[in-house]
């Protein structure tokens, strides 16, 4: 890949005599960024957030107290900039640039843009992802147990879809059921009141029913989760604790529960 397709043409330019504090503020919004430093129309160097940090006051308080604010505010970009940036022609390949960055050999001049390590890593990510698409590693499927024949059908579809994706990606699947009538303390295994025995029995029954839904060959990659309370809350909490990257659920995309989950989920939701 030619570097001209990667470079940032609109990268910021600062004058060498400008205040370092002001330049650092501009860099703060872009941690992977880099400013081009010009001095009288000529390239003088570059300034990265790390350079600004290195030249600024010490990060250790007991050393920073010995730095006079009057002087630190007088620091200029020229005090902090890297004077020997790696310079490459726009036709250089990213491989050339990576090599130059590692070994720091510079060549001739006219500023057309800036390429940072972050940009190169971004291009590496893209290329690797084309070769091997990113895999999902954790999925969550929400199913309802006590349901009408129609709901059961859509639940089985959701489960089949989730199991299929899980197998293809070599992922782990969490099979979740949210019970409205269940005490939260019982679901979380905490001490509970008089009704607790009945509730515990219902919880165990739900877990067993969930486990029966999983085909034998998928048992090692599937775990069951039963939660109490509101369905949407339960799905979102389970997705957060298991780190789910995809939520699969039965139901039309327009259904209230599905819509609410899509709105609040930390990851994509697949409604079947």
């Amino acid at each position: 890949m030619r570097i001209k397709t990667l470079m940032r043409c609109s990268s910021g330019i600062v004058e060498a005599r400008e205040s370092l504090a002001a330049a650092a503020m501009r860099l703060a919004s872009d941690p992977g960024g880099c400013l081009v430093v010009m001095d009288g129309g000529r390239l003088a160097g570059v300034l990265t957030p790390a350079d600004a940090r290195a030249a600024g006051p010490s990060t250790v308080p007991c050393l920073a107290v010995h730095e006079l604010p009057a002087f630190t505010s007088g620091l200029t970009v020229a005090d902090a900039m890297r004077r020997d940036p790696v310079i490459v022609p726009p036709d250089a390949t990213s491989s050339d640039v990576a090599h130059a960055l590692r070994t720091r050999v510079a060549d001739s001049v006219e500023v057309m843009g800036v390429v940072t390590t972050t940009d190169l890593l971004g291009s590496l990510v893209e290329r690797l992802e084309q070769e091997t698409p990113p895999r999902l590693s954790r999925l969550l499927v929400a199913v309802s147990l006590a349901a009408s024949p129609g709901r059961r059908r859509s639940m089985h579809t959701a489960l089949d879809v989730a199991l299929d994706i899980t197998r293809r990606h070599g992922a782990m699947l969490t099979l979740l059921h949210v019970m409205r009538g269940l005490s939260r303390r019982v679901a979380e295994g905490l001490p509970a009141g008089v009704e607790a025995d009945v509730q515990r029995w219902r919880l165990a029954e739900a877990r067993a029913a969930l486990a029966r839904l999983v085909p034998r060959e998928d048992r090692s990659t599937t775990r069951v989760d039963v939660r109490a309370g509101d369905v949407v809350e339960g799905v979102l909490n389970s997705a957060a604790t298991t780190g789910a990257e995809l939520i699969v659920m039965g139901g039309r995309p327009g259904a209230a529960v599905v819509r609410e989950t899509i709105r609040r989920a930390p990851c994509p939701v697949l409604a079947t």
Binding site: A50, T59, E67, F71, L75
Partner: peptide
């Protein structure tokens, strides 16, 4: 970079 940032700036009186 952290080690460089911990060093005092040119404005130190030390």
């Amino acid at each position: 970079d952290d080690l460089a940032a911990a060093r005092p700036s040119a404005a130190t009186t030390l």
